[in-house]
């Protein structure tokens, strides 16, 4: 089983945002997409989720092009957590989480026992029962992020794609949410996350995909990809790599812009 991008190219307007990207992610592993703003991370994630159609190349889910899958089957297999944490209407947290079961339900049927069990388990996994009956837009940023993650987990997806799930969260909640992704991967989910924090990426990732200017620059374990040279080239940053400590396989200390540090 694999979710694979084959020679993926995509333009938005006249700008080439993805340039012949080939990448394969596997179940039970966390792949982090890293790169500066405009590198093509979100576009790649949306392509992997089947939400953007590439100009050339293909996204394969196992051996089938993702575009050939019925929408419901794709929704059952791939859970997508978009960047925005705002809800248009302030539904109760429980109702938001229950929407994750939509691909498994008949449109007008009451939730089945399996639906209720999946919702309950997702709430337990994200510790959201306490505020399940509160309007989601009245929750704190950390609570709402957990509710939206629970919404995706309630769908029992094989693949979990998340776009900057730590944005606007305080450090404690960032660690908390990352641990939930690790737990999902440990249960067999293939996880792809877009992140900006290099240390979080090093902590959580089994593999890191470095993107720059729409191209895949490097793909592999953190120790091989997050080198000072690669970080300087891609992020224009001067960094120092310190040894592993307290759950972090490496510590990346930012020393400033590459040129100013020189």
């Amino acid at each position: 089983m694999a979710l694979t991008a084959r020679s993926l190219s995509l333009s938005l307007g006249r700008r080439l945002v993805l340039d012949a990207i080939s990448l394969s992610v596997r179940p039970g592993r966390i792949t982090v997409l890293l790169g500066p703003n405009g590198a093509g991370k979100t576009s790649l994630l949306r392509c992997l989720a089947g939400l953007l159609r590439p100009e050339s190349g293909a996204i394969m889910l196992d051996d089938a092009p993702i575009g050939t899958l019925p929408l419901r089957e794709r929704a059952r297999r791939i859970g997508y957590l978009p960047q925005s944490a705002e809800l248009v209407w302030s539904l109760n947290a429980r109702d938001v989480i229950a929407l994750g079961r939509h691909p498994w339900r008949s449109p007008f049927a009451a939730p089945s026992e399996a639906d209720r069990a999946a919702i309950a388990d997702a709430m337990t996994a994200t510790d959201t029962e306490r505020f399940a009956d509160r309007p989601a837009n009245e929750l704190s940023g950390g609570e709402r992020a957990r509710v939206l993650l629970a919404r995706v987990l309630a769908g029992s997806p094989e693949w979990l794609l998340a776009d900057e799930p730590l944005a606007s969260l305080d450090p404690a909640h960032q660690i908390d949410i990352l641990d939930r992704f690790r737990a999902a991967a440990d249960r067999g989910c293939g996880v792809v996350i877009v992140l900006h924090d290099l240390n979080h990426a090093a902590r959580i990732a089994d593999d890191i995909a470095l993107l720059h200017g729409g191209r895949l620059v490097a793909h592999g374990p953190a120790a091989d990809t997050l080198t000072p040279a690669a970080i300087a080239e891609i992020f224009d940053l001067s960094v120092e790599i310190l040894p592993a400590a307290r759950g972090y396989p490496m510590q990346i200390v930012t020393c400033g812009r590459r040129n100013s540090a020189e």
Partner: peptide, 11 residues
């Protein structure tokens, strides 16, 4: 309510 991308990802 979840936004267009999330809604599309749910089928």
């Amino acid at each position: 309510s979840l936004g267009e991308d999330a809604a599309r990802s749910l089928g």
